[in-house]
Design a protein around this nucleic acid. Structure first.
Length: 273
DNA sequence: AACTATACCTGCAAGC
DNA sequence: TGCTTGCAGGTATAGT
């Protein structure tokens, strides 16, 4: 489900409780995620070790342990990670339970099983999941100069380039549509035709859209919840996403939907002409 | 080489 | 009511 703001919201909601906690036991109920759950590595390098750091890279949550290993969790489209009282009944599709020394359980639940759990072994620095990733959109590396270079002379729709994780990470279908609206750029525009001032606007729009969504605790369209089970509020600020056939809040023109990069794309044909 | 379409999986809403 | 269909926020990979 979640894009960068939702993952960052989950990270912040878990950090206090999880950092400094020991994982006392790991129960695996379903190994068939996007890749098989690495039971052996979890028991060897994660179980009975203490979480030192909970960070985010792209849409991955990274738990660094005092064993030197890193637990990598991705939530795919329908994944959830939350803290529960051990007495709370297990919800359907709960695949892995991490029992914490603080007497809580961190439960991974994912009906569609597009998520994944992986372990980077102690001493390893390269990782097949992370190595190819582009820059973080909220970092200083993501600026107009960088994006101009990556847009190049490409004829691809600008939306497709922004969804490309080797260019910039963390933007999914919701926030790309919203950021392009904020920058008043047509998602179909050939990437190479954007002017420098349009790229300036686009970079600023991406950063501010993501920051506003994080401040709102993410977007809860159907079932997103943070680590404490709380919904987000950014859905109240969506300008175009899933608003096809409804009037644009700025100009009143009907919002349109098209398909780009195989996914629904929402835009105002008047504001983003 | 650059790019797009497809597959992975379950749940849900809409339509019949 | 109950069936079928289409669609859903992500990513890797097969194919053009």
């Amino acid at each position: 489900m979640p894009e960068l703001p939702e993952i960052e919201t989950i990270r912040r909601s878990l950090q206090q409780q999880v950092e400094g906690c020991r994982i006392s036991a790991i129960d695996i109920f379903e190994k068939r995620l996007r890749r098989p759950v690495p039971a052996g590595l979890l028991h060897r390098y994660i179980e009975n070790f203490v979480v030192r750091l909970l960070e985010r890279r792209a849409k991955y949550l990274l738990f660094t342990f005092d064993s030197g290993a890193v637990l990598i969790i991705h939530l795919g489209m329908s994944g959830r990670l939350g803290l529960f009282d051990p007495r709370h009944p297990l919800e359907k599709h709960t695949h892995v339970v991490f029992k914490l020394s603080c007497d809580l359980e961190m439960r991974f639940r994912d009906p569609r099983r597009f998520g994944l759990i992986a372990v980077q072994q102690p001493g390893r620095t390269s990782n097949v999941l992370l190595d190819h990733l582009g820059v973080e959109p909220l970092s200083d590396e993501f600026n107009a100069e960088y994006l101009c270079d990556r847009l190049g002379k490409s004829m691809r729709p600008v939306k497709n380039v922004l969804m490309d994780a080797t260019v910039v990470v963390g933007l999914g279908n919701i926030y790309v549509s919203e950021a392009l609206f904020a920058a008043k750029i047509d998602p179909c525009r050939a990437a190479g035709t954007l002017t420098r001032s349009e790229v300036d606007l686009l970079v600023a729009a991406i950063k501010s859209t993501l920051l506003q969504a994080i401040a709102a605790g993410g977007t809860t369209l159907n079932d997103f919840r943070n680590g404490r089970g709380e919904a987000g509020f950014f859905q109240q600020q969506l300008m175009v996403y899933q608003r096809q056939e409804q009037p644009c809040y700025l100009c009143g023109h009907s919002v349109r939907k098209c398909v780009l990069a195989g996914r629904s794309t929402f835009f105002c044909p008047s504001c983003q002409a």
